[in-house]
Computed example of a mutant assay.
Amino acid sequence: MLVDSHCHLDYLERDGRDLEEVVGAARRAGIERLVTICTKVTQFETVRAIAERFEDVTCSVGIHPHEAGSEPETTTEQLVAWARHPKVVGIGETGLDYFYEHSPRGTQQKSFRAHIRAARETGLPLIVHTRDADEDTIAILREEHREGGPFPGVIHCFSSSKWLGEEAVKLGLYISISGILTFKKAEELRDAVRDVPLDRLLVETDSPYLAPVPKRGKQNEPAFVVHTAEALAALKDVSAEELAEVTTRNFRTLFAKAA
């Protein structure tokens, strides 16, 4: 059995997909759990309602760095309050994105810190998005770790440097692998992932984006996580069964509320 630790079912529904069919296809593919991720607190009720519709779907609460400048400023206390809902199993996605910079860097950083503190207070994993911001991401994670104490978390859709992966693992975070791993031009990423310990790995789709080979060109969906898992198993030189067992165990450890 596998877990899709990061998908956006609300985006799929917005695109006209029947979620009963999407979740059903995932179940038939052997996916036992889905986490649908919140990117806007103004849409949290929609995300939460989707999780409430399906026994095997849980959700997160948070503000994507792209939205940090347009969403209402949200405090740690507000995030903690929303996270009390039984279906909420993670904080985020949050982090820093200096590639697009849809929100000012300072605003992203302030939001990131509020989410980190909510993860620490609730014990729920911090779901980190980082792109072209390796140094600042690690600097903030280290500083918050040093000054406030440890917190659980995951670098989602890992596509950063080997250095960031190593530093994140040192801080106790997990690394989640998406369909990017299967892309022809992703050799640098594959080199970085080879050195990540098995007991720190998760798999995800980030659907509807980043469909893995052999589904490239199609809209991604949770059932396709099996292809990423197969590629990751080959890269780590383990069987598909062992990879599924390890990543599912890792998920249950990190996302304990979802277990």
Rank of each mutant, 00 (worst) to 15 (best):
C157T: 04
R249N: 13
E77D: 13
E55W: 00
S70H: 11
F255H: 03
R117W: 13
L235F: 11
D18H: 08
I155Y: 02
R28D: 12
A49L: 06
L2K: 02
D191H: 12
L96G: 05
R131W: 11
K215H: 14
V226I: 15
L198S: 11
D10R: 04
I127R: 01
H129V: 03
C38Q: 04
A29P: 07
H102F: 14
K184R: 15
S176K: 00
V89Y: 04
T46L: 13
G69M: 10
A51Y: 01
G30K: 01
D134K: 07
I31P: 00
Q219H: 13
G179H: 07
R113C: 08
E144F: 07
F151A: 08
A223C: 10
D132Y: 09
R252N: 12
A192L: 07
R194M: 05
T122I: 10
L141F: 09
W82K: 06
R53P: 01
D237S: 13
H102E: 11
Y98L: 11
D132W: 11
V41A: 13
G123Y: 02
P65D: 03
V41P: 09
E45V: 08
D206G: 08
H85C: 01
S159Q: 10
V169A: 11
C157H: 02
R200G: 08
D195F: 10
A114R: 10
E143I: 08
K236L: 00
L12G: 09
H115I: 07
L126M: 08
Y100H: 14
I140R: 05
R146N: 11
F255P: 01
H145S: 12
P222R: 01
G92R: 02
F251M: 05
V225S: 07
H66P: 01
H64I: 01
R17C: 08
L202N: 03
E67Y: 08
Y11F: 15
I50W: 03
A139V: 08
A133D: 12
